[in-house]
Structure formats: C-alpha cells, structure tokens
Design a protein around this nucleic acid. Sequence first.
DNA 1: GACAACTTCTCTACGATGTAGACTTTAGCC
DNA 2: GGCTAAAGTCTACATCGTAGAGAAGTTGTC
Lengths: 236, 236
Amino acid sequence: MTSPNGTTNSSGPRKARLSREVVLSAALELVDAEGLEALTMRRLGQELGRDPMSLYRYAANRAALLDGVTERVLNELAIFVDDRDWQAQLRRIGHDLRLLALRHPNVVPLLVTRPLSTPLGLRPLGTLRPLEQILALLIAAGFSPADALHVYRAYYGFLYGHILNELQEYIVDPDENEAVLRLGLHRLPAKEFPHLRALGPVLAEYDGDVELDQGLSILLSGLATQLSGPPQQPLG
Amino acid sequence: MTSPNGTTNSSGPRKARLSREVVLSAALELVDAEGLEALTMRRLGQELGRDPMSLYRYAANRAALLDGVTERVLNELAIFVDDRDWQAQLRRIGHDLRLLALRHPNVVPLLVTRPLSTPLGLRPLGTLRPLEQILALLIAAGFSPADALHVYRAYYGFLYGHILNELQEYIVDPDENEAVLRLGLHRLPAKEFPHLRALGPVLAEYDGDVELDQGLSILLSGLATQLSGPPQQPLG
DNA sequence: GACAACTTCTCTACGATGTAGACTTTAGCC
DNA sequence: GGCTAAAGTCTACATCGTAGAGAAGTTGTC
C-alpha cells in the first residue's frame, strides 16, 4: 500500500505532501466557493486534511496567504507584449480581466484593496507583472515611458472602476437576480429615490460586456488623440 | 457636582449620553487615525469611555457600524441637482469625491468593497443618494433615464478607478514618499521589471488632480458625442 | 541496515475579537 | 416617593491568528 511517488491512496484528499501551489489552489477554491470570510487558517487546514499550523510553512501569515491568492488569480491574465496594435491589445486585456473578475468575484475585493495597504515596491511580484507588461506593450508601440504611464493609469483605472461597478449590480444568486433586484428597489422610499426605482427594469438588463467595450472605445480613442506624439494606427 | 444638562465634568471624555452620531463620528475618527483594523468594538467602546456592548444600541453589529461610517463619509459629498451644465457638475463632483477619498483614505476600501456584498436595494440609503442625485442631474439635463444610467456607470466607474489608482501610488507616510517609493522599486528584479524601475522618478511626480481632470475630459466629451440625443451644451 | 540532519507537520496554549443574554443603572414622568 | 422604558454593563462563549515546543517523516551518508 505504499505509493512511493505522489499519488495518495484511498482515504480522500489526505496525506500528499503539501506545497505552496497546493495550498494556494485550495485557498482560491475556498474563496471562490464560499467567500473571503470562509478562508480562515483553520478552515483551510481542514480542507487540506492538515493542521492549520502547517500552512505557515507556505505563507508567513494570513495576509500573505491572501496576497498569494491575488497573485495566483492575476497570473491567469495573459498579456502579449509584442502586439503592435496597442488599442486592440488593451481592449482584449480589458475583456479578459473582466471575465477573470466574473470568474472570481470574491477575489476582486483583494485585487482592489490589498495594493492600497502595500507600497508599490513591496507588493507580490505577480501583482506587478501586468503593470510592467502593459508598460512594455505601450512603449513598444511607440509611447514615451511617461506617456505610457499616463495611458496605463487612465486605462487600468477605468477598467477596475468598470469591474467594481458591474460586480455591484451583479447579484450573486443568479436565480434571484431580477427578483431580488426589484425587491431591493421596492424597499427604497419612493419620494427620495424616484429615478432609481424607475430604473429597475433597465438595471436588470445590464450587459457589462458592451458597456465595457463602449467605455474602452471612448477612452482609447480619447487617449490616442490627446497624446500628440505616439502612433494612432499601426497600419500601412 | 451634578451637571444636570449634558456637559460632563472634569474626568476626560466621560459620561455624555451616546447617540448614533457620536458613535459614528468616533468610529470615523478612529478609522482615519489608525486604519480599519483599529476599529474594533472594544476599542471604540474604550474611545468613548463606554462598555463595548453599549455600541450595539446604535449599530446592529460591526458590519452595520462600517456601513454607518461609509454613509457618513458619503454624506460629505454635495450634489446640486439643478445645475443644467451636467458636464461641469460631474467634473466638480469628481474632484470633490477625489478630495474626500484623500481626506479619508482608510475609508475607501469600505466605499469600494461593501457594495459588492450587498444587493443594491439593501444598501444604506446614504450610500445610494449620490447615485439617485446624479441620475436626477442627468435626466434634468435632458438625458433619457436609460442614457443617464449609462453615463452614470461610465462616469462613476472611471472615478472610482482613478481614486483606487491614485491611492495605490500615494504613500501614506508623506515624508518618506519619494524615498520609500524608490526603495520599494529598488527591490524589484531588474530583469523582470525594467520599465517599472525606470519610471521611479516619473511615479514620484504623480499629480492626481490633473490626471483625473484629463481623464474626465476624455470621458465626458466622449459620452456627449456618443449618446446622440441629449444636449451637448446648455449655451445659446 | 543505523545514524544524523533537516524539513514538514502537529499539539497545546494564549490573547484578541464579535456578540448573545441577563443584569444594573439611569431618565423621565406620575 | 414609585413606575417604566431606555441606556449601559457584566459575564461568558465560540472563533480567530499565531507563537513555541515537540513529533513524525524524509533524505543523505556510511
């Protein structure tokens, strides 16, 4: 019954050797399934069939664990630095990030919040990689470094803003989406919130994808014309 | 030594009657001064010279206390629904909200995060008021309700995105601003983060106000031209 | 095989947190 | 005075992160 290499035997997800990967995966799974508050050291230990304290080999503390999770999620984002059509690239990345956020909505608060309490240089490297790569992309497309930074800021700012907005309106329980929404709106005092209440139906039809795309169009073309020097289109 | 009406006697901030206002003010002060984690029931009780349990008269639980704080902060934002120049209004509100965020940086995570876990209709009313008022503003300026919602989304999304961005780069310790920034960047592996490292000086000169204003210009003019029907300018 | 050195995992324990429930104190009114 | 309701307090408990000491498991060398 000794399985010398890796594969565990019968009794469930038991004693395979832990690793940072395994721990972070389990953590992400847990967060996706039950939310951030469910991710306690004890609970995660239990999920892995280990003593909670064993986790401290793979993350210095709970905060580091959270950082690991955000890092892992951001790694799912692919950025191709060589594409010369920066607008198309930024547009695609934007949609990808949106989908990422919809796939891991419970992680979004981390994505958005943790950088606020950590100076730039001390963040997990995986977190900074998108920034670096987008800068590379823009610079390769002909922007000066300083302009690239401006574009990045406007772009990423808008992107995160959109994601927050969309997740706010997205109800977690997909069944109750419309019902809860209206029920919610129903509770608002009619005299103070006439417009909001009237928008119930429109709110229910929110299409985040096209909304994002329209916003990106405005932003990208605006950026392209505002910044004088750099290339408008990589066409002949 | 009996002071019949209100004013406490010598020994420090003692036994004045509590109220929701007083509690929330103290909570906000605490958060501003020492951050969100410092806001525990026990600590706040101590700050008010009261038993922690007394706070539950004024907020159902800790989450409700946090909601109260965000509500209180958002109340500092003034919106004038009657102004017909919607672009100017949105621009002003944007700058106001930015300043609000800089005044209460520790509250921003709440502003951004709490709506994610609460369906729209169940949020504290004070939180929804800006939304309602901006809708009113846009509709009064001639937009259809649905278009007003689109404008609102793009606008607020961009705005929150900008604020998050700016706070990320803003170092809490104003003295060490440049030093910490560079020290931080210094730690990055040179081969993986060449562009980011090179941008150190530029990062240090970040002027959030003009950055915001430029972004708003792009966005507002883009929105004005994209949406066919509504008025461009309230002139002539 | 035996031993040693090291890594990984577990046990126990401590202080801090949110908050339920029963109690005491206070304020306002007759 | 006494009565009632509100405001504030006390005690207690489950749960959290994590320090520190030790046990178990792994690996390398003979």
